[in-house]
Design a protein around this nucleic acid. Structure first.
Length: 316
DNA sequence: AATTCGTGGAG
DNA sequence: TCTCCAAGAAT
């Protein structure tokens, strides 16, 4: 089977023609294996040079990157990742420090529970895996903060194991190419997992995982996709259908201003900036609503992100 | 299954 | 300005 037809991108004009003319005949999904070769070829030319992709990056470096990249853009992760690995080059090094140091070093990456879980994962790796990041998907999955995506990503990128990697980028690519919809379902479905497994080339699975993620991140983006630069535009069902807009219930955007999350963030910011215990009054000034402030602090304590120290508060 | 959990850059 | 959303996980 020739891949030439897919390897030649449409010109911008051809894309707009396809978009404007809309469907002329029955539009069917391409064969699952039709897109792998052109996407991998595209990746060879267009991959970003990210530090956790270099051959000298340890499995621990990959694991740290995956934690930091959960819901956080690459551009914001680069610098904290570099400093993190400089300070803690192994899981053991991190496990030797209090969890609060991980929370402090996490800085403003957001979702600081990830820092706590990464620290807990480092401890577990020392206890259960002799200090080595495990290769096995099930063992990875058992680590704190490691879900289906992260386990598959670490197995793939650190150990070149063949696991379908279904992140938000890949899900969007598959939704567009095969389902002809602008966006995937709200949460991963059985059908998506089955498709991801069929699309994955057994012999280049890890490369495919990185390549399909990269395509979603750089070309098949959530807003303003660059279809004129896409290596599989001619196979894409969504493009063939005229790029129909998302149909269905509006997708949940997360409010932030005025939420407990914002208050938690403000409280934790103060605690990160102080080595020792912080008296209550230093926390009281970050938010006017005492009820919400108390609730936020309670939840931080419940999460283990904050500890009491006499009458004061500090990182764990 | 639906919510909760930070932060900041881009359009 | 305001909305969207970025390599998810846990509950």
């Amino acid at each position: 089977m020739s891949t030439e037809v897919y390897a030649t991108p449409m010109t911008p004009n051809e894309v707009s023609m396809a978009v404007e003319s809309g469907p002329t005949a029955a539009i069917e999904a391409p064969e699952p294996t039709a897109i792998t070769a052109p996407v991998i070829e595209w990746f060879a030319e267009n991959a970003r040079d990210l530090p956790w992709r270099r051959s000298d990056c340890s499995p621990w470096g990959v694991l740290v990157s995956e934690f930091m990249l959960q819901q956080t853009p690459v551009s914001r992760v680069l610098e904290p990742w570099r400093r993190w690995l400089d300070r803690w080059p192994t899981p053991e090094a991190l496990a030797l420090e209090p969890a609060g140091e991980a929370v402090r070093a996490w800085g403003r990456l957001g979702y600081p529970r990830r820092a706590l879980r990464l620290h807990a994962a480092a401890v577990a790796i020392g206890e259960r895996h002799d200090g080595q990041v495990p290769e096995d998907h099930a063992e990875l999955l058992a680590l704190p903060g490691v879900g289906e995506y992260t386990a598959a990503a670490v197995a793939s990128f650190a150990y070149a194991r063949a696991h379908p990697v279904l992140d938000t980028n890949v899900r969007r690519v598959l939704a567009r190419v095969f389902s002809g919809t602008e966006f995937p379902p709200p949460a991963p479905t059985v059908a998506e997992r089955a498709l991801a497994r069929r699309v994955m080339p057994e012999e280049e699975a890890a490369t495919w995982a990185a390549a399909s993620m990269e395509l979603g991140a750089l070309v098949c983006t959530a807003t303003n996709p660059r279809c004129d630069a896409c290596p599989v535009v001619q196979a894409c069902r969504w493009v063939a259908l005229g790029r129909p807009a998302h149909d269905g219930p509006p997708r949940r955007g997360q409010a932030y201003a005025g939420t407990d999350r914002q208050v938690r963030g403000l409280l934790l910011q103060v605690l990160r900036e102080h080595e020792g215990p912080v008296p209550q009054h230093r926390l009281d000034i970050v938010w006017p609503d005492a009820t919400q402030r108390a609730r936020a602090l309670e939840s931080l304590l419940a999460d283990g992100l904050v500890r009491t120290s006499g009458d004061a508060f500090r990182l764990p």
